[in-house]
Amino acid sequence: MEPSDTELIAAVRKGDVAQFEPLIARYQPRVFATARRYARREDEIQDIVQEVFIKAFQKLDSFRAEAPFEHWLMRLAVRTCYDFLRVHQRNRETTLTDLSDPEVDWLERFAAGPADNSNNTDAARALVERVMAQLAPEARLVITLLEIEDRSVKEIAQLTGWSIPLVKVRAFRARAQMKKILETLTQEKYL
């Protein structure tokens, strides 16, 4: 039977550093999935994940076991991703002429019939990535957690360390910013 998180953490705290490895192996897929929401390049993703686990190891004494280790680790992961976004902010404005042909095709099909736009999801994904990359770090974080991961405002507040009113304000501003980006992106041709 595999040792529980609590047992492994207790062993690490007593100085048995090797017991941290099963914890990494257990939770690294989730941390990788989280990091891939905010970074594209594989080397950046690996750096984020590595930083998350190093921080977790260094701060393990502050883990109070009031909530599951996974929740504590995911909070750390989200905050590390936010730090990454702040450092690597590159929100260059994109216009329609910057889009690839499949992205323009997708937008044209959407303009022709918004309901019938199920094919070429790769182009749509690229478009999403392009829009998300232009959002401010806090806007990208809140849109990802709220709209894509379907988390509640309370959950986001716990994950980010922001207050509930701040999450609401940032969500409102993020949606407005996203709308503005889409407007810039499409205004040359469709507005």
Binding site: P29, R30, F32, A33, R36, R37, F110, A111, P114, N117, T121, A124, R125, L127, V128, V131, M132, I143, E147, I148, D150, R175, M178, K179, L182, E183, T186, Y190, L191
Partner: peptide, 22 residues
């Protein structure tokens, strides 16, 4: 173009394709 609808559509696409956990 209806930007709200476009926004919803793009969010639906992002939701439907979660990142890999490999």
């Amino acid at each position: 173009m209806d930007l709200d609808q476009l926004q919803q559509k793009l969010m639906a696409v992002a939701k439907a394709s979660p990142p890999g956990d490999h």
